[in-house]
Design a binder for these strands. Structure first.
Length: 113
RNA sequence: CGAGUGAAACAUACGGCGGCGGGGCGGCUUGUCCGCUCUGAGGAAAGUCCGGGCUUUUCAGAAGCAUGGUAACUGCUAACGGCAGCCGGGGGUGACCCCAGGGAUAGUGCAACAGAAAGAAACCGCCGCAUUUUUGCGGUAAGGAUGGAAAGGCGAGGUAAGAGCUCACCAGCGUUGUGGUGACACAGCGGCUAUGUAAACCCUACCUGAAGCAACCUCCGUAUGGGGCAUGGGGCCUUUGGUCCCGGCGGAGCUUCGCGCGCCCCGGAGAGGGCUUGAGCUUGCUGGCAACAGCAAGUCGAGAUAGAUCGUCGUUUAAUACAGAACCCGGCUUACGGUUCAGUCGUUUU
RNA sequence: UGGGGAUUUGUGUAAGGGUAGCACACCAGACUCUGACUCUGUUUGUGAGGGUUCGAAUCCUUCAUCCCCAA
């Protein structure tokens, strides 16, 4: 089992335009409901983050952190994580805390102790 | 010990747990699945500065012109602006390193300011003659001043004063001889020599069609998409023709039913190929100063498509720099970590 | 990923290898009781390194940054 992936530019633009954003210096999370019945995930790192090595690392860190925080299917949602300049320098354990906070605020995760 | 030079190999180790891309095998609940197993980034993958393969194109393959590029010589290479050796020049105490290094008597241009003068020169000065005694004519590149550069350098002879005018040595040019495949070096002789710039135009020799895998090829044919052509049916009239209407084809003329859409162009949601066995890599031998070539044996080492190598714990003195394949090779350039080896210089000790 | 272009003062732009200009802005002064307008003056620059040249914004080369084009 793994994440279903958003891979079309149209889909990204739809989520950016209509979805809700949760902003943090370490990462930005866009969330939007879909009608597919399952969860889709996208990871983005622009050229502002750095060159190829830094962008790849940013995507890896975001993917590893999301695996620890969110189960593979939480309902009909599209989720996009956008890396910021700090992201490639982080450990995934640091990013887990902020992701848990942001996803709870967005309503995808229930509050837990 | 310190400073510096050249070369080589390696470049996030090892183990546990979890996770990712690709191939193969197996399972059944046939799919966005599960299990096992093999494999999975670089020395620069980077910059895109050159050269090739490959593909398309209006065949450019032979010759010429234009444009752009290269530039000592000999070799190596598929080719190159690359590499090796060698020549010449330059830098460093040295190990060693650097050089777009053809032609300025083929021609044109430029050399600001300064300076008399920037090309075949007379401002001052020096000398001779004349003279109204402070000017005119002539000779002269030794001296002055300017400049990045001042008409081969320096010494002696010579002279009215001077001058390659003459001579020795040195530099440059031409020519002859010797050595070398050659660039060139050495020696002799000759006349006595017109600055720099060609990374200014240019001349000479050689090379060069253009674009790039988002190239290109194939499938599918969606909103029964848009346009054109062909052809058919019906009505009317001035009937070998004109005009209007209808339209995928067929049953049978509308409705309706069945089949599944005449040809060409545009549009293009999407899928696949191109895609990795190649001037390949490793080891040994032979030839060559070397670059490199040849032979033999062994070997297969990514192929993604929102784009795969990570997270965490432990061990060792410590796990770290620059940095991520995207069609593929050969170079160059730039970025960068510690390690090893071989030379050099300085200081100290023996 | 591939291809192309640009970089001159705070901003916009000129400049045949020979002192880097122009306009606006900023600052100072004058005019005014004060401000604006106007006038006068000053300051502020060739993206970085290396090379060719007597001398580079300009010529050559290696980098850096920014922009554009091609699904």
């Amino acid at each position: 089992m793994r994440y279903r992936v958003i891979n079309k530019n149209k889909e990204f633009l739809r989520v950016y335009g209509k979805g809700k954003a949760q902003v943090h210096p370490q990462v930005v999370v866009y969330v939007l409901k879909n009608r597919l019945g399952y969860t889709r995930v996208g990871f983005t790192a622009t050229k502002k983050v750095g060159k190829a090595v830094k962008r790849n690392r940013a995507r890896r860190v975001m993917r590893a952190a999301l695996c620890q925080v969110m189960p593979y299917d939480v309902g009909s949602w599209d989720v996009i994580l956008v890396a910021r300049a700090q992201t490639p320098g982080l450990k995934s354990t640091q990013l887990e805390k902020t992701l848990r906070k942001l996803l709870t605020r967005a309503g995808l995760l229930e509050k837990e102790s």
